[in-house]
């Protein structure tokens, strides 16, 4: 538990909470980006350099931009006016709070059995690459197929139907 953990955790929580509660959708995406950058910093803090940078590359560079494009193309950048009734929102928050309470209870009751301290594992990109190419080569291939299918599928779905029949 270092001071940097608490600072980065605060950034992450503020960013994600703002992303889920702000009215303007673009603000939501921007604060989500802040939260995800905080999460990437947490990965770096945990010693997973490769995963942290991948997180920034994929989420800030691709997913946030994609979401922004979707917002622009669906004309939902203006603040929403027709919010769902308060009881509906309250029930959602209550469910989430219950989930958090249960998870927190489970974690705190399991604290004694959790490993407390260990040395920082030294993991280089090289090791990750070797593991990807040997031990995890089948999942890698499957991910490749999945990403190709997603690319083609997304392009076809987003294609204008009138344009496609041309």
């Amino acid at each position: 538990m270092t001071i940097s953990f608490f600072i980065i955790a605060a950034i992450t929580i503020v960013g994600t909470a703002a992303a889920m509660s702000l009215k303007n959708l673009v603000h939501c995406v921007l604060s989500l980006t802040l939260g995800l950058v905080g999460l990437a910093l947490l990965f770096l803090l945990l010693g997973a350099q490769f995963v942290g940078f991948t997180q920034i590359l994929v989420y800030v560079g691709a997913v946030a931009i994609l979401a922004v494009f979707a917002i622009m193309m669906t004309r939902s950048a203006e603040p929403m006016t027709n919010l769902p009734p308060a009881s509906f929102r309250l029930s959602g928050v209550l469910i989430a709070a219950t989930v958090f309470a249960v998870l927190a209870w489970a974690i705190s009751s399991a604290t004694r059995s959790l490993p407390s301290q260990s040395s920082q594992p030294e993991v280089s990109v090289n090791q990750i690459g070797v593991a990807l190419m040997h031990q995890f080569v089948l999942p890698l291939e499957v991910i490749g197929v999945l990403l190709t299918a997603a690319l083609v599928g997304a392009a076809i779905l987003a294609m204008d139907e009138t344009g496609a029949s041309r």
Partner: peptide
């Protein structure tokens, strides 16, 4: 950095967001 080139492209992609 161990993943220096990846860092370069990851941080470089933040420019797009600021442009938006």
């Amino acid at each position: 950095l161990n993943a220096g080139v990846l860092f370069f492209f990851a941080v470089g992609s933040m420019v797009e967001l600021s442009v938006f």
